[in-house]
């Protein structure tokens, strides 16, 4: 059982909802983002998604785009991100999931030549050693992920599958069959960022998905408060909060970011604790 699986099983046994917090690595500075990841656990996060900045984040809204630009200016690299993971791992068993775009991984350890498609495997080996438990790659849909699934399976690193309110039952059956760790349930069409979303649509999809897999369901996109987190968590096992926390961190409001995590934690526990 991996650290992530154990954490999710413990939460389930306790009748609690999981809280995943996405933090862009390198924003507002590399050291501050490391401190934020460590402190997030103390504030109530169960899992930290380590945001890997990319110049063209297709699935992300304005907040994470802006934080990525800052992080890249600060000189963040995959090597430095794995160093951060090692430092977190030295003091915590909290599951860490890397979230980044395919180009980042493909380019890892690139040393020349025109056929260097082994970057992904190199990354997974090093990520595993650094204490990363899984990866989320938003621009790789199920149809394109067969090779990556095989690599991740070999090293026992979770590769996240996705469902959205538009996912058809046929596709859902396929994606759920290879689900590992948790399924990322995207709450609406479009990009990341806090906005008003009707969570009943994804909540209905989650019930369908559970027919095909026992893997945990985590709802993300749009969640910026305890109240909304409770709506999003109706049928899921966990919620994912990114932009709302990143916005505060990026603005240097560290304490406000941690207080927001605490608020969401409290709201979830109040509504769902057995």
């Amino acid at each position: 059982m991996t650290r992530l699986e154990k954490k999710l099983a413990d939460l389930k046994a306790a009748g609690r909802k999981g809280l995943f917090i996405y933090i862009t690595a390198g924003t507002p500075t590399i050291d501050e983002s490391l401190r934020a990841m460590i402190t997030a656990e103390k504030a109530g996060a169960d899992v930290v998604e380590v945001g890997i900045p990319f110049s063209d984040p297709l699935a992300d809204g304005a907040v994470i785009q802006a934080s990525s630009v800052t992080a890249l200016k600060n000189g963040i690299t995959l090597e430095k991100i794995l160093d951060m993971c090692k430092k977190i791992r030295a003091e915590s068993d909290m599951p860490l999931i890397g979230m980044g775009y395919i180009n980042n991984f493909m380019s890892y350890g690139y040393s020349g030549g025109s056929a260097a498609y082994d970057g992904f495997e190199k990354f997974i080996v090093d990520a595993k050693a650094a204490g990363m438990d899984g990866v989320i790659i938003p621009d790789v849909p199920h149809e394109e992920s067969a090779n990556m699934r095989a690599v991740c399976k070999k090293y026992e690193v979770h590769l996240t599958e996705f469902i959205t309110p538009e996912t058809t039952p046929e596709r859902m059956k396929e994606t759920c069959a290879s689900a590992s760790g948790f399924v990322y349930c995207v709450s609406n069409t479009g990009t990341t960022g806090v906005k008003k979303i009707d969570y009943s649509r994804i909540n209905a999809k989650i019930l369908d998905a559970r027919k095909f897999t026992d893997v945990a369901m985590a709802v993300g996109f749009g969640i910026g408060s305890g109240g909304v987190a409770v709506q999003a968590a109706q049928n899921s096992d966990a919620v994912i909060v990114g932009s709302a926390v990143v916005k505060l961190l990026h603005a240097g409001k560290f304490d406000d970011a941690m207080n927001l995590i605490k608020e969401i934690r409290t709201a979830l526990d109040k509504s769902f604790n057995k």
Partner: peptide, 21 residues
């Protein structure tokens, strides 16, 4: 010259360096 594999505009192709487009 010699290309570098990567992904641009959502199709597998050869492209730019890490983090830079």
């Amino acid at each position: 010259g010699a290309g570098r594999p990567g992904f641009a505009d959502a199709a597998g192709s050869s492209c730019r360096g890490l983090f830079s487009f």
